[in-house]
Computed example of a mutant assay.
Amino acid sequence: MSAHANVQVYGFGSFTRGESKYRDIDILVIYRNLEQLRAFLRDLYELPSDLPVDVISMTPEEERHFDFIRSEGARLVLGPAREV
């Protein structure tokens, strides 16, 4: 996944909070253009996983508008800190 230096991935939800009961992994992908997003998702869905992965994707501008990272307590798991 290091080929995806132009996206940021944040975890949020019950799995990221370390709760004992969770049904999926929730991630937020912040991207600048659709090709970056498509490439990341293509690689993500090729990874083996026992849990479903729910993906929300936003541009940096959308994330700032909705303040999603702060409001959900999301944590950066991949990518450069803050601005992409």
Score class of each variant (00 low, 15 high):
R17G: 08
N6S: 13
G11I: 12
D67V: 07
D67H: 10
E61S: 06
V84W: 10
G11N: 03
L76I: 11
A3Q: 13
V9A: 07
G73L: 08
M1N: 09
F40T: 08
V84Q: 09
P80W: 00
P52W: 06
K21Y: 13
L28D: 06
I27V: 15
S2T: 11
R32M: 09
S14A: 15
L51T: 00
H4R: 03
I56T: 13
V29G: 04
R70F: 12
P48T: 03
F15L: 10
R23K: 08
Q8A: 10
G73I: 03
S71W: 01
S71F: 10
D50E: 14
Q8E: 08
A5Q: 14
L34T: 08
V77I: 15
I30W: 05
V7W: 03
G13I: 09
V53T: 13
Y45Q: 08
V53H: 08
R70K: 13
R17T: 04
S71Y: 05
F68G: 01
Y45K: 05
A3Y: 01
L28C: 13
A39W: 00
L34K: 09
S2K: 14
S49W: 01
I69T: 11
R75L: 15
E83R: 12
F12L: 09
V7C: 04
S2Y: 01
F66R: 10
E35F: 14
D50F: 03
N6V: 00
E46C: 03
Y45N: 14
F40S: 05
G11M: 13
H65T: 15
L34E: 14
Y45M: 12
P52E: 09
A3P: 00
R23L: 09
I30C: 10
I27L: 10
G73M: 09
A81W: 11
Q36Y: 09
E61G: 02
Y45L: 11
R32D: 15
E35I: 12
V55I: 12
F40M: 10
I30H: 04
E63Y: 02
Q36T: 00
S14K: 06
P52Y: 11
L51P: 05
V84F: 12
N6I: 01
M1L: 14
F66P: 01
I30R: 01
L47Y: 00
E35V: 10
F15K: 01
E62G: 05
R42N: 15
S57H: 08
G13L: 07
L41K: 10
D54W: 02
